[in-house]
Protein backbone atom coordinates (compact mmCIF):
# COMPACT_ATOMS: atom_id res chain seq x y z
CA UNK A 1 0.00 0.00 0.00
CA UNK A 2 2.82 2.36 0.83
CA UNK A 3 4.80 3.80 -1.98
CA UNK A 4 8.23 5.30 -2.04
CA UNK A 5 8.58 9.00 -2.64
CA UNK A 6 11.94 10.60 -3.44
CA UNK A 7 12.62 14.02 -1.91
CA UNK A 8 15.42 16.36 -2.92
CA UNK A 9 16.84 19.54 -1.51
CA UNK A 10 17.03 22.25 -4.15
CA UNK A 11 18.30 25.77 -3.93
CA UNK A 12 16.19 28.41 -5.58
CA UNK A 13 18.56 28.88 -8.48
CA UNK A 14 17.92 28.67 -12.17
CA UNK A 15 18.64 25.35 -13.79
CA UNK A 16 18.36 23.18 -10.70
CA UNK A 17 15.08 21.51 -11.57
CA UNK A 18 16.21 21.08 -15.16
CA UNK A 19 19.25 19.22 -13.93
CA UNK A 20 17.18 16.80 -11.84
CA UNK A 21 14.95 15.97 -14.76
CA UNK A 22 17.96 15.50 -17.02
CA UNK A 23 19.50 13.00 -14.62
CA UNK A 24 16.22 11.08 -14.41
CA UNK A 25 15.63 11.18 -18.16
CA UNK A 26 19.15 9.99 -18.80
CA UNK A 27 18.41 6.84 -16.81
CA UNK A 28 15.05 6.29 -18.41
CA UNK A 29 13.18 7.09 -15.23
CA UNK A 30 9.66 8.35 -15.65
CA UNK A 31 8.09 10.90 -13.32
CA UNK A 32 4.55 9.97 -12.21
CA UNK A 33 3.84 12.80 -9.84
CA UNK A 34 5.75 15.75 -8.44
CA UNK A 35 5.41 18.73 -6.18
CA UNK A 36 7.66 21.52 -5.00
CA UNK A 37 7.44 23.15 -1.60
CA UNK A 38 9.49 26.29 -1.59
CA UNK A 39 10.72 29.15 0.57
CA UNK A 40 12.71 32.21 -0.49
CA UNK A 41 16.00 30.35 -0.49
CA UNK A 42 15.30 26.72 -1.10
CA UNK A 43 12.73 24.19 -2.13
CA UNK A 44 11.95 20.56 -1.56
CA UNK A 45 11.15 18.59 -4.67
CA UNK A 46 9.03 15.50 -4.08
CA UNK A 47 8.77 12.86 -6.77
CA UNK A 48 6.95 9.66 -7.47
CA UNK A 49 8.77 7.78 -10.21
CA UNK A 50 8.52 4.39 -11.83
CA UNK A 51 11.84 3.26 -10.37
CA UNK A 52 12.36 4.87 -6.98
CA UNK A 53 15.43 2.87 -5.91
CA UNK A 54 17.26 3.64 -9.12
CA UNK A 55 16.20 7.29 -8.94
CA UNK A 56 17.47 7.54 -5.38
CA UNK A 57 20.83 6.12 -6.37
CA UNK A 58 21.41 8.15 -9.52
CA UNK A 59 20.33 11.43 -7.94
CA UNK A 60 22.62 10.81 -5.01
CA UNK A 61 25.47 10.00 -7.37
CA UNK A 62 24.75 13.24 -9.19
CA UNK A 63 25.45 15.06 -5.90
CA UNK A 64 21.96 15.88 -4.70
CA UNK A 65 20.77 15.54 -1.12
CA UNK A 66 18.08 12.89 -1.43
CA UNK A 67 15.80 11.08 0.97
CA UNK A 68 13.10 8.46 0.58
CA UNK A 69 9.75 8.85 2.33
CA UNK A 70 6.74 6.56 2.45
CA UNK A 71 3.46 7.96 1.21
CA UNK A 72 0.14 6.59 -0.06
CA UNK A 73 -1.56 7.15 -3.40
CA UNK A 74 -5.31 7.46 -3.09
CA UNK A 75 -7.96 7.25 -5.74
CA UNK A 76 -10.31 10.22 -5.51
CA UNK A 77 -13.55 10.45 -7.44
CA UNK A 78 -13.13 12.99 -10.25
CA UNK A 79 -16.21 15.02 -9.32
CA UNK A 80 -17.10 17.93 -7.05
CA UNK A 81 -16.70 16.92 -3.41
CA UNK A 82 -14.48 13.94 -4.28
CA UNK A 83 -11.44 15.09 -2.35
CA UNK A 84 -13.58 16.47 0.47
CA UNK A 85 -14.96 12.98 1.16
CA UNK A 86 -11.49 11.49 1.46
CA UNK A 87 -10.31 14.29 3.72
CA UNK A 88 -13.36 13.87 5.92
CA UNK A 89 -12.33 10.26 6.58
CA UNK A 90 -8.87 11.32 7.72
CA UNK A 91 -10.25 14.14 9.80
CA UNK A 92 -12.66 11.81 11.59
CA UNK A 93 -9.81 9.47 12.37
CA UNK A 94 -7.91 12.44 13.82
CA UNK A 95 -5.05 12.08 11.32
CA UNK A 96 -3.02 15.08 10.27
CA UNK A 97 -1.97 15.52 6.68
CA UNK A 98 1.54 16.83 6.24
CA UNK A 99 1.14 17.46 2.53
CA UNK A 100 -0.60 16.16 -0.55
CA UNK A 101 -0.34 16.58 -4.29
CA UNK A 102 -1.96 15.19 -7.40
CA UNK A 103 -0.64 12.81 -10.02
CA UNK A 104 -0.01 13.90 -13.54
CA UNK A 105 -2.16 11.06 -14.90
CA UNK A 106 -5.56 9.99 -13.82
CA UNK A 107 -7.80 7.09 -14.56
CA UNK A 108 -10.96 7.77 -16.62
CA UNK A 109 -13.16 8.31 -13.56
CA UNK A 110 -10.78 9.09 -10.77
CA UNK A 111 -7.93 11.43 -9.89
CA UNK A 112 -4.89 10.14 -8.02
CA UNK A 113 -3.62 12.01 -5.01
CA UNK A 114 -0.42 11.46 -2.98
CA UNK A 115 -0.88 11.80 0.78
CA UNK A 116 1.85 12.12 3.36
CA UNK A 117 0.50 11.43 6.84
CA UNK A 118 2.50 10.85 10.00
CA UNK A 119 0.57 7.67 10.95
CA UNK A 120 0.44 5.92 7.60
CA UNK A 121 -0.92 2.59 8.83
CA UNK A 122 -3.81 4.22 10.64
CA UNK A 123 -4.60 6.27 7.56
CA UNK A 124 -4.62 3.21 5.34
CA UNK A 125 -6.92 1.37 7.73
CA UNK A 126 -9.31 4.32 8.06
CA UNK A 127 -9.53 4.90 4.33
CA UNK A 128 -9.99 1.26 3.45
CA UNK A 129 -12.72 0.90 6.07
CA UNK A 130 -14.63 3.60 4.21
CA UNK A 131 -14.05 1.95 0.87
CA UNK A 132 -11.52 4.44 -0.43
CA UNK A 133 -9.16 2.75 -2.86
CA UNK A 134 -5.45 2.97 -2.18
CA UNK A 135 -3.17 2.08 -5.04
CA UNK A 136 -0.65 -0.73 -4.71
CA UNK A 137 3.04 -0.07 -5.27
CA UNK A 138 3.20 -1.89 -8.61
CA UNK A 139 0.13 -0.04 -9.86
CA UNK A 140 1.70 3.30 -9.16
CA UNK A 141 5.10 2.52 -10.65
CA UNK A 142 3.55 1.05 -13.78
CA UNK A 143 0.95 3.73 -14.37
Amino acid sequence: MKIKQISLFLENKSGRLARVTRVLGGHNINIRALSIADTTDFGILRLIVNEPDLAYRVLKEAGFTVSATEVIAVEVADEPGGLARVLAVLEEAGLNIEYLYAFVQKTPRAALVVFRVEQLDEAIAALQAKGVRILKEEEVYSL
Partner: peptide, 15 residues
Protein backbone atom coordinates in the same frame (compact mmCIF):
# COMPACT_ATOMS: atom_id res chain seq x y z
CA UNK B 1 25.45 22.74 2.81
CA UNK B 2 22.48 20.52 3.48
CA UNK B 3 23.82 17.00 3.64
CA UNK B 4 21.77 13.93 4.49
CA UNK B 5 22.14 14.41 8.25
CA UNK B 6 20.45 17.79 8.03
CA UNK B 7 17.94 17.18 5.27
CA UNK B 8 14.29 16.75 6.00
CA UNK B 9 11.42 16.24 3.64
CA UNK B 10 9.50 18.92 5.52
CA UNK B 11 9.85 22.62 4.88
CA UNK B 12 9.09 23.52 8.46
CA UNK B 13 11.88 21.36 9.79
CA UNK B 14 14.38 22.96 7.45
CA UNK B 15 13.17 26.40 8.42
Amino acid sequence: EVGEELFSDKVRQLE
